[in-house]
Design a protein around this nucleic acid. Structure first.
Lengths: 184, 184
DNA sequence: AACTATATATAATA
DNA sequence: TATTATATATAGTT
């Protein structure tokens, strides 16, 4: 996607790696933003830079998406208000403004989110403590969620399998080439 | 990026919206994968499809990335270890090995389990409250997978909420804590 | 940090 | 779905 084709392998030169990261992170966030607007999709991305610094992107915000992901209720029939209208197609400046807002705006809700996070920690520990609670889940709508998530996991896997079809130089094929098994 | 330039505004036609979502989600995941390999970046993506279904992507895995975010908390009692040093970044073989492991780990069961998952999904729509059938899954490997994936989803949500607690733009170096996962 | 030449993603089409 | 023309991202360059 540039002057020359590159192999998808770790960039050795730290300088080049940092430049590549900056460019591609911007690209990824832009793609994420476009996807969210085009398809009315709410999404969040978290990552560590080569310098091990955390970066995130969220639309409408990381915490909102995360919140919904965790606390998703069976409100799939509820019509949401569109945060982007037809004639409000954002230009590049709008996009960058929005990105900046999203990237820095989370500070505003720190205290509020701290409560939630604490609550979530509590929940995790509870779940970790007793496996019997898993059985509790089976009698709840949570199982419905698990089924959905499982299907999604398969979709993700298929996506990765698709990626694996593209040869990566310097990588052993041993694990990959034994794919494509059918059911008996 | 296609035959014609499009405005970044919500796609009206549901059919087209679904097609666009599928294409761009694949593209986003591919970009995310490439970024993670090129720059040694670990990242996770969660999103809701137009049909409000959750999707996720993680490299090297969702829960690993979630772990690092989750345990990045500035708590004082956690052992500090700099697993994030530059030269600890996984090389391409490591990355591909892990990816391959993940791929082969799920690929073996994809066809078989996809059927089951589809079947489950169908049942879910036909009988939303059919708990009896759900209980039949209690002892199946499929359920195991579902539970794991569900835990992954929770972990991502948690890490994102925790991320929201700490602004990530322009942040100075922080000590990142290490922690080994209980699962697997 | 800006600038191209080129690779890649994808919108429209078949 | 699969293909193809075009828009976009970005690798190397300045």
């Amino acid at each position: 996607m540039g002057r020359r084709k590159i192999e998808i392998a770790e960039v050795k030169d730290p300088n080049n790696k940092q430049v590549t990261f900056s460019k591609r992170r911007s690209g990824l966030f832009k793609k994420a933003f476009e996807l969210s607007v085009l398809c009315g999709v709410e999404l969040a991305i978290v990552m560590f830079s080569p310098g091990k610094r955390p970066h995130s992107f969220g639309h409408p915000s990381v915490n909102i998406v995360a919140d919904k992901f965790l606390w998703k209720k069976p409100t799939s029939n509820v019509v949401r208000a569109n945060y982007v209208r037809e004639n409000d197609a954002p230009n590049e400046v709008d996009v960058m403004d929005r990105l900046s807002q999203q990237l820095s705006g989370v500070e505003v809700h720190i205290n509020e989110e701290h409560e939630k996070a604490t609550e979530l920690d509590k929940r995790e520990k509870e779940q970790e403590a007793s496996q019997a609670q898993n059985k509790e889940l089976l009698n709840s709508p949570v199982l419905q969620r698990m089924v959905e998530d499982y299907v999604d996991a398969i979709e993700v896997s298929e996506c990765m399998l698709l990626l694996a079809k593209e040869p990566v130089v310097g990588i052993s094929n041993r694990t990959i080439t034994k794919r494509r098994r059918r059911r008996n």
